[in-house]
Design a protein around this nucleic acid. Structure first.
Length: 129
DNA sequence: TTTCTAACA
DNA sequence: TGTTAGAA
């Protein structure tokens, strides 16, 4: 379920193809880039290369525009979406940290127990772990 | 031929 | 946004 996302992120489409796929003008597509809504990659010749995800985003923008949204409001929509993603990532990192801590504590406990069987019982205090 | 940047009747 | 000029 991750291989697919990678392919969708591959920038392989030139602006000409994107124009046909989205029915947007090159002028519009480049303008949306100026507005930082869709940032395509650049190939060796400085030509914009878009991914399937970019196509979807452009179509989304097109829909918003059709619904009467202006650039400012569309920007805000994506700004909020980006903020939510950031919070999600923070929580992810947090839970991973917690899990890592538990593993470390568990290892310490096991090691402490093993050592106690063959050495001095000087770390009996660690039983609280 | 296609795309890029920059500018404007 | 459209269109165009001159360069890659």
């Amino acid at each position: 379920m991750k291989e697919k996302e990678l392919r969708r992120s591959l920038a392989v489409l030139p602006i000409g193809t994107v124009m046909k796929l989205t029915d947007l003008s090159a002028r519009q597509i480049r303008y949306y880039e100026e507005q930082e809504l869709v940032i395509p990659e650049r190939n060796e010749g400085n030509r914009r290369m878009y991914s399937l995800n970019d196509i979807d985003k452009l179509l989304e923008i097109k829909d918003y525009l059709a619904d009467g949204y202006n650039m400012a409001s569309i920007k805000k929509v994506y700004a909020q979406k980006a903020a939510e993603e950031e919070r999600r990532r923070e929580k992810m990192a947090q839970s991973l940290s917690d899990d890592a801590v538990r593993k470390i504590l568990r290892n310490d406990f096991v090691n402490a127990g093993g050592l106690n069987r063959h050495s001095k019982p000087s770390i009996r205090n660690n039983r609280t772990l």
